[in-house]
């Protein structure tokens, strides 16, 4: 197929491919994402009422939410939540935990070094690289602007 035909074909195919259920997906993303955030708020409030300051409570909440995401993945439930919730399951920090536990579990049979430990970061690796990398750049810019 030549270049022009390929473009025509792509447009033709786009019409043939069934469309996602946009509205339903958005509602489910809202409900699932909102639920995870509310659970986070509940944990924060419990930690605060036990005398933790703001920063400590935030750190404790992160740890707890990561644990919840990792446990749900281990139990084989997070993929089902993700299927229904889409971005509502991907964006909360529980989704970040899922992106680490899922490949780590999957590659256990390839060993604990090049399997579990190396594959843990297939999705999370880029997140940490760009996240931490950009934070350092922002730190350096802050210094320059001072």
């Amino acid at each position: 197929m030549d270049k022009l035909n390929k473009n025509d074909y792509k447009k033709y195919v786009d019409k043939k491919v069934p469309k996602p259920t946009y509205l339903r997906n958005m509602i489910m993303a809202f409900l699932v994402g909102g639920t995870f955030c509310t659970i986070g708020q509940i944990i924060t409030n419990i930690l605060k009422s036990n005398g933790l300051d703001k920063d400590m409570a935030a750190a404790g909440t992160s740890i707890s939410m990561v644990f919840i995401g990792a446990l749900l993945t281990g139990l084989g439930l997070y993929d089902k939540i993700g299927k229904v919730g889409g971005a509502g399951a991907a964006i909360p920090i529980t989704g970040f935990a899922n992106s680490i536990v899922a490949p780590a579990m999957e590659y256990k049979r390839e060993g604990f070094i090049f399997g579990v430990a190396a594959k843990m970061f297939t999705v999370a690796g880029p997140v940490l690289v760009y996240g931490i990398g950009s934070s350092v750049i922002i730190g350096l810019i802050t210094l320059l602007l001072r």
Partner: peptide
């Protein structure tokens, strides 16, 4: 928390779809 968290996820879902 529910509404703001949910809205952020809706933005994500629109991008995904």
């Amino acid at each position: 928390a529910f509404i703001v968290g949910g809205l952020i996820c809706i933005i994500g879902q629109i991008i995904l779809d």
